[in-house]
Amino acid sequence: MIWGSNASAQTGDIVRIATFAAPLSRDGPGLLLRDITKQDDAGIAAIVAIINHISPDILILTDFDYDAGGAGLSAFSDVLADPYQYKFALRPNAGMQTGLDIDGDGFTGDARDAMGYGRFLGDGGLALLSRSPVDVVNVIDLTELRWRDVPSAVLPQMNGTAFPSDDVQAMLHVSSSGHWIVPINFGAQTITLLVYSATAPVFDGPEDFNGLRNRDELRVWEAVLDGTLAAPPTNPIIIGNVNADPFDGQGICSGIAGVLARPDLQDPMPMSLGAKQAADLNQMGDPALDTADWSDDGPGNLRVSYILPSRALNVVGAGVFWPAQNDPLATLLGSDGLTAGPHRLVWVDIEIEGLR
């Protein structure tokens, strides 16, 4: 176990990698850019303050509205204390209408009938900010991988028939947002981020559509690591919002539990005193590992955001930004602890010099 401090300074060959499911999605296209440029949004201000404090070298944002020109991402980077030189995003499945009845309610054209839930194209996509070059030429985008083509996929059924229909299962992508294989170069060394954000395994019916999809979105990375979907990547790191806890919550816990037990990956077990203090009654997992504060409304506090590096990488630190109640830094979360949203930023420090 690595109990990480919240120190922001990096030295030598240490690279800090972070993921943050901060609520940077809005009700329509262009509204996020508007709110960033106005600089009067309390939630954005809190998110920026947390990022400034942790100061990651690489940051994955898993709820960031996509626009084709990257204006929103550039504007967000520019309001940070130390803007990022490299910015990367691809069009997500979120909000991409299919013309089919994806949720089986008898209607088409609403947010649940897109390739991934979304009120508009790009709603709540993925974004990457980096201080080191992104090897764009060698990025592999698996966002259009069909669900039925995922090795060992389990597609939903209702009363022994495909749910919601054979037509949907023939064309639906597994990604609710996106799946990117992204190499990042550090001189002669490379790490490869396996970036994604999975659907919440709830808001469905007895067919468990979202639960099964959530499980198979993670199964994509298992297939990549096993070499059955793409060549095994160099120094892979699974990173993003898995939206599943290995012990608690309504997801298929065995999925993420199995990935955490893989011998080719390591779990840095980033912890926080704030999460430990906020433990739920009857929680089965270690509450110090939680990354989302849903204790007042929802499934309870859970561990849902992860950074899982290759076993070949030298991890030297890890943490979750969830300060203890008496820590002055807790003010960055707001008076109710939720100004920056229910999710907490997760970070891991890796010694690049030790790559092999």
Rank of each mutant, 00 (worst) to 15 (best):
A288K: 05
S295D: 11
A275P: 02
L308P: 02
T143E: 00
V168N: 06
H53E: 12
S132R: 15
A71M: 07
A223L: 05
G28H: 15
G249I: 04
L281Q: 15
A261L: 14
A7R: 12
A324I: 07
K38Q: 07
D110K: 05
L333K: 05
I17G: 01
N52M: 05
G178C: 09
L61A: 06
H53F: 09
T192C: 00
S55E: 08
D149R: 09
A7D: 14
D280R: 04
L172D: 00
F88N: 02
A275Q: 00
N326K: 14
I51V: 14
V315Q: 06
L193W: 02
D327P: 03
A231G: 13
L121H: 06
D65L: 03
Q169A: 03
P299Q: 07
A340M: 06
V220I: 02
G125R: 02
D245V: 08
G251E: 01
F203D: 14
D166F: 05
T108P: 07
F76V: 07
I350W: 05
V139P: 06
T234V: 15
A111C: 09
A71V: 07
G4A: 06
I14A: 10
Q277T: 10
I36E: 00
Y117C: 15
D40K: 13
I191A: 10
A22H: 00
P342F: 08
D245P: 08
D297R: 15
D166G: 06
F163P: 08
A21H: 08
V220C: 02
L308N: 02
Y66L: 04
G4K: 06
Q266Y: 06
I58Q: 02
G109L: 04
R34H: 09
N138L: 00
G334D: 01
L345A: 03
D65F: 08
V202T: 13
S55N: 10
V48P: 10
A257Y: 03
F64M: 00
T291A: 07
K38F: 13
L218T: 12
G116E: 02
A127D: 03
V136F: 12
L193V: 00
R303Q: 09
N52L: 03
F107V: 15
S74R: 14
V202E: 15
A68Y: 04
D166W: 01
D349W: 06
S176H: 11
L289H: 10
D286S: 00
P268E: 03
A261F: 05
P201H: 03
H53Q: 12
A261S: 04
T234N: 11
Q10S: 14
K276S: 14
A68M: 07
S335V: 14
W221L: 07
I36W: 04
Y86T: 11
G205W: 15
A7L: 10
G43A: 10
Q325E: 15
G125C: 02
A21C: 13
A279G: 05
Q266E: 08
T161R: 12
